[in-house]
């Protein structure tokens, strides 16, 4: 077992987990809702990408790849907006919103996965390889196409998202809402509209993650569950609402996962992961970055 391989797979996993976790983290901190329909968004985006891939017969593989990725991101964003319209908009100013929002998104994911099952049936679908079938060697390191693609595209999208959040006006809105929703309303930020932006953004992140993960796994109605749980646990470990914390946690858990599957075996990944998360949370109940910034009290 060589270290370069472990590090590489850790990096790939970390980038995908980072996508998922940051989506959940941003949703929680800016609209104040734990989006449990994230897995559903993931699955819907997978199906969207699959549908576009089915349409693209006899087309240049590069165009197909781009179209599939774009379709995944697009349907993900659309699903995110739908989730927002159905769960955030009706109850965001009603009493006991956080718990009700959590339950509403859970109900939505129950409904949504069953609808997907109804429409597409239980058979799994596969996506075409969007990054082609090449591999590059750097000394001892072998970089396969899907890994390289996943790494590059997720880092790209993350960087774009983070700079957008940091520098644009909408990003400022979202961050202001993360800090103080009441103050945001006074400044003139429309809570509902910003909610839709946020959910579209996080949906797009989930969509990209779906396309990337479905290079190795399959698209099925329930395929969103495991990524969502991993994303949630990474976000939890990093501290809900913290972008930097989520990135650190993604790196730690990605390393843990690749180490575990290399030395102990694939079935122990979840066990070691949860043991790690529980230990981290027992030491720091608000996650890795929970003490760095008090973005939003739970």
């Amino acid at each position: 077992m060589d270290w370069s391989y472990i590090l590489l797979s850790a990096l790939t996993l970390a980038s995908i987990y980072g996508l998922l976790a940051i989506g959940i983290s941003i949703t929680w901190s800016s609209v104040g809702m734990v989006n449990m329909a994230y897995g559903l968004t993931f699955a819907v985006a997978g199906y969207g990408a699959w549908g576009v891939a089915e349409l693209m017969v006899d087309v240049d593989p590069i165009i197909t790849g781009v179209a599939v990725v774009a379709a995944g991101i697009g349907t993900g964003a659309l699903a995110g907006v739908l989730v927002c319209l159905m769960t955030f908009i009706p109850i965001h100013d009603k009493p006991n919103f956080p718990v009700r929002g959590l339950i509403a998104t859970l109900a939505l994911s129950l409904m949504g996965t069953q609808i997907l099952l109804w429409i597409f049936g239980p058979r799994v679908k596969t996506l075409p390889p969007v990054f082609g079938e090449w591999q590059a060697e750097f000394g001892a390191i072998v970089l396969t196409a899907d890994k390289a693609g996943a790494l590059v595209s997720s880092i790209l999208l993350l960087a774009v998202t983070l700079t957008w959040l940091k520098s644009s006006r909408r990003g400022l809105e979202i961050r202001a809402m993360m800090m103080n929703p009441h103050g945001a309303a006074i400044v003139g930020i429309g809570v509902r509209r910003t909610g839709i932006y946020v959910m579209a953004l996080t949906g797009a992140l989930a969509g990209l993650a779906a396309v990337l993960l479905c290079q190795t796994y399959f698209v099925s109605p329930f395929s969103g569950l495991t990524p969502m749980i991993k994303g949630v646990s990474v976000a939890l470990c990093g501290g809900l609402g913290s972008v930097s914390g989520a990135l650190i946690a993604a790196a730690i858990l990605g390393l843990n996962e690749s180490l575990t599957s290399a030395y102990l075996g694939g079935q122990y990944v979840l066990i070691t992961q949860f043991a790690l998360i529980i230990i981290i949370l027992l030491i720091r109940p608000r996650g890795i970055a929970g003490m760095l910034d008090k973005a939003r009290e739970a």
């Binding site: 929680w28 734990v34 956080p98 959590l102 749980i229 949630v232 646990s233 939890l236 809900l240 949860f274 998360i277 529980i278 949370l281 109940p285 608000r286 996650g287 739970a298």
Partner: peptide, 10 residues
């Protein structure tokens, strides 16, 4: 709160 809910889900 939610930290525990999400953890138990996991």
């Amino acid at each position: 709160g939610f930290y525990y809910a999400l953890l138990t889900l996991g």
